[in-house]
Design a protein around this nucleic acid. Structure first.
Lengths: 120, 120
DNA sequence: TCAATTTTTCAAAAATCATTGAGATGTTTC
DNA sequence: GAAACATCTCAATGATTTTTGAAAAATTGA
């Protein structure tokens, strides 16, 4: 991930509705959710507003879409999220392990850092 | 770090000049750099422009300032960067270890994830 | 084919953000 | 105290982003 992509991703995540959509899509997993359901989850925001934010997220590489019947299903692009975390760590760790280490340690989710020779 | 803080941090990082300033400050370490030196490093941007971006970063908790003689020295707030990474991981990992694990593995910086019982 | 459903597109209005330049503030040196 | 230095504040301007509402496209079912 280069600087441009990172900036686009940060911009996409710096808006309340979009950040909430991303969280929703991450929860939803690879199957994703139809645009309508996403809108309903966002205080029933107008369809054009949701469409705007969804295409913004897609533009930033954080979501992808596929048509299924008359619905359009959006799902999170986990690779981009992963790359964004890596970007942030690369940028922030330069000689400062005290930045990354706590973040990794604070990780109370299902992620187990692969400790077997993880120096890519 | 709550949603509001995360949004502020993402917004701060989603602007080229600010992202570059953050990188510079991270490189500079805890000693930081005077505003003038930061401006000089940014293609010699005008002082008011740099001041605007620096106070934006300070507002977002990503930088702090102290006066030293006639200079004002800015330095990175590593804790916020760390929390932002943790926020992103928390959000993105929910049941999806394949997101975090590669990011952690891709970590080619000096950060060694503390593997001794790091389940805080 | 017609009507209903789902979502997008588009243009206009509103809101927010970035840059500029002038002037103000605090600090040091003489 | 005056001059020089480093940075900030403020108002004006321009640029970008967000929201809204109306209309258009794609799909399904009768």
């Amino acid at each position: 991930m280069d600087e441009k992509q990172a900036i686009a991703a940060f911009a996409a995540l710096s808006q309340e509705t979009r950040l909430r959509i991303v969280r929703l899509l991450v929860e939803a997993g690879p199957d994703g959710l139809p645009a309508g359901a996403i809108g309903a989850a966002m205080d029933g925001a107008s369809s054009s507003r949701i469409s705007f934010h969804l295409s913004h997220l897609e533009q930033a590489g954080l979501a992808r879409s596929r048509r299924e019947g008359r619905s359009i299903i959006y799902s999170a692009v986990f690779a981009t999220l992963s790359e964004l975390i890596a970007f942030l760590m690369r940028d922030c760790c330069q000689g400062h392990p005290e930045v990354c280490a706590p973040a990794v340690a604070a990780l109370s989710c299902a992620c187990e850092p692969k400790t077997e020779d993880a120096h890519a």
